[in-house]
Design a protein around this nucleic acid. Structure first.
Lengths: 209, 209
DNA sequence: GTAGGTATAACACAATCATGTAATTGACAC
DNA sequence: GTGTCAATTACATGATTGTGTTATACCTAC
């Protein structure tokens, strides 16, 4: 019997998944939880082969839980389960060792197929997720801001993302503090933001840096 | 009708694929060739929605053909078809814009399913291929913060990422400005950063928000 | 019940940031 | 050669942020 544990805060959905998995004669759902607050103990105790992990849960997120599981039990397969794929969470999950990424809208038979594939050492993705992953291999044209930031501004932005203060940026680029201020002001207006944190968030999300 | 063209130098295999695809009422195999020597003219003439491309063919390889197709007709979906995925060819194909990568040992029903997925904008991989792709994401393991941020802190962090000022965060969460300061100070020390931009960059890159 | 973590709040101070205005230089285009 | 734009610098001012210290209340675990 293959031991499977489910984390999913939506009760009805969790039960349906459990029932679905139990239709397979070699699957055994040895635990299913609405939150990941005790994921470490639960892994130690239940020792599953595979975990189905919802990403968005109250309290500890599926991302954190994934990290904790992989740290202590790298052999446990973790398949992420989510409504839709936000890029950062997707790629962060993959980096953290998720074995697959299944969208919740996936049909029951494909769901079962994906679980099977994961257990066979494959890496099941919902096709839309796979497509997103593919894009990173292409030199995807990044959506540009309304007014393009100049090369120099991009340099400044990159340092800002690294957490440099204006003073440090000025030193790094060998320009005056006032020039740094000027550049950053320009960047804000071009990106339509009004503070550093917002600019940094946008820059990372658009893959500008 | 969806026009499909096949490139495959193994004659029996090519015919079986053609027969298989023709079992689907909306697929039309408008061409099938044993080599890719005239792929450009054939694309211009046949204007398929999707091409199934064997990688190893005598004369012009499937890789070259893929490149030629994507240069002139980027809208044509190309699914690579091969015996086993050599890493270089796999990643080169993905970079060149292949829409999927199917192993030849794939069963007929999964083959048809993959074609369907590709046509729907997904990116079908044989699970073993997907697993290989995954590994490239696992180069640098993401480490979690030494001390986990509390749920409340995560809330604050999320607002910070959205570019909220301390004042706005306080209003949003209905707490005092000083409490916001306190939370953010805690976040900084837990994430080992020392300013908002750095914290935001880290949070996004680690998929915390 | 005591310890530890979380959430709350206040006060104070220094550093940093955001935003004006104004001006100079060099590169490139028409 | 004139205009536009990027990059540079300066000065000024008010708002925001980062960091101390201190304190209360609540919950959980042992």
């Amino acid at each position: 019997m293959i031991r499977i544990v489910i984390y999913e805060d939506n009760d009805p959905l969790r039960r349906s998944m459990q029932l679905l998995l139990m239709t397979h004669s070699s699957y055994e759902v040895t635990g299913s939880f609405g939150h990941a607050g005790r994921v470490e103990e639960e892994m130690d105790l239940l020792q599953p082969e595979l975990v189905i992990m919802d990403i968005d849960m109250p309290g500890r997120s599926g991302m954190e839980a994934l990290q904790l599981i992989k740290q202590k039990h790298p052999e446990i397969l973790v398949v992420m389960h989510t409504v839709f794929g936000e890029d950062e969470k997707l790629f962060a999950s993959l980096c953290m060792g998720a074995s697959g990424y299944i969208l919740k809208k996936t049909s029951p038979d494909k769901f079962m197929q994906y679980i099977q594939e994961a257990l066979e050492g494959g890496a099941p993705f919902s096709p839309l997720i796979a497509s997103r992953v593919l894009q990173t291999f292409r030199q995807q044209p990044v959506q540009q801001p309304d007014f393009p930031v100049s090369p120099r501004e991009l340099q400044v932005l990159a340092l800002l993302v690294k957490g440099y203060s204006y003073k440090l940026i000025a030193a790094e680029l060998k320009i005056s503090l006032d020039t740094v201020r000027k550049h950053i002001g320009q960047i804000y207006s071009k990106l339509h933001v009004s503070c550093g944190t917002e600019a940094v968030a946008l820059a990372i999300r658009r893959g500008m840096v």
